[in-house]
Design a protein around this nucleic acid. Structure first.
Lengths: 147, 147
DNA sequence: GCGATATACTTGAGCTATCAAGCATCCTAC
DNA sequence: GTAGGATGCTTGATAGCTCAAGTATATCGC
């Protein structure tokens, strides 16, 4: 019970602070950032929108609108899938890469600071392990290999 | 870093599930519930809106609108402060008490289940302790003692 | 007393997310 | 091949929150 309250409050406090920083410094939302990050790690810098949605815990429509924004800013582009005309890939542009790299330093440092000032290394590891159990999803398979 | 990701994902997953249940079963938001709960614990079942906002991590305007809704549903009422005409108290009505009691059983059981299925008692205690450090606020003083 | 500043709250505009519904494409069974 | 259903995505309506600005009351220094 206390754990639940802690989770709610902790998340709200941290999220708000970090998101505010990110928006102020780079005009990116926490979710924007997460999406860019996931894309940058994906092979070819591209992912199906559906998979992206699952990874950042948004609905399909949420991803559509978020990507609309990122596309308008020039950080991602659309690409068709050769083997399945239903799917459109989101692909990271050079500008997107650039933006991500620019934002990453400050952002990661910010996160690190927030945690380091409250926890020892051991505690951090424990916390990470415990939290990881909260969301019971697994990695998804590949559907349509881009050429 | 992993801790941060875990916090994000864990919170999103849990919050979504619990909020959905609560809305489906009782038409209450997680925040609605939290507010009713705080009020029920406050002396006289009433609190200043400002203090309430701070406790549930909302802004002043957020509280105004949330309470508008709860008031429209008849779960809370407004009350003036005799010693400071600027403040209005939010006070829990009988219907609010009732609603809270009705929702609490199911909701608390749901929370418990989510945690119990993933953690031992010890782990839960550890998690609670760690999370509690994330938000650095202290209890607030009394400003205007009702009557 | 009276202006300047602070505090409690409300309101309007905007953002991000959701859900429900719709369209297009793909796949499978007949 | 074609009907029925699943899948990927988009769109319209709506909820919940934030910020910025506004109103009303309190308080402090003169």
């Amino acid at each position: 019970m206390a754990a639940w309250v802690g989770l709610l409050r902790g998340h709200a406090a941290l999220t708000r602070a970090l998101n505010a920083d990110l928006v102020a410094d780079h005009g990116l939302t926490l979710n924007d950032y997460e999406v860019l990050l996931r894309l940058s790690r994906a092979p070819g810098g591209q992912m199906r929108r559906v998979d992206l949605a699952e990874q950042v815990l948004l609905t399909a429509s949420g991803i559509t609108r978020l990507l609309d924004g990122l596309q308008a800013s020039g950080y991602v582009d659309k690409a068709a899938c050769s083997s399945d005309a239903r799917v459109t890939y989101a692909v990271l542009t050079d500008a997107g890469h650039e933006k991500l790299r620019a934002a990453a330093d400050v952002h990661v440092a910010g996160i690190h600071a927030k945690f380091a000032e409250r926890y020892s290394d051991d505690e951090m590891a424990t916390l990470a392990e415990l939290l990881s159990r909260l969301d019971g999803s697994e990695p998804d398979g590949e559907a349509c290999k881009p050429e």
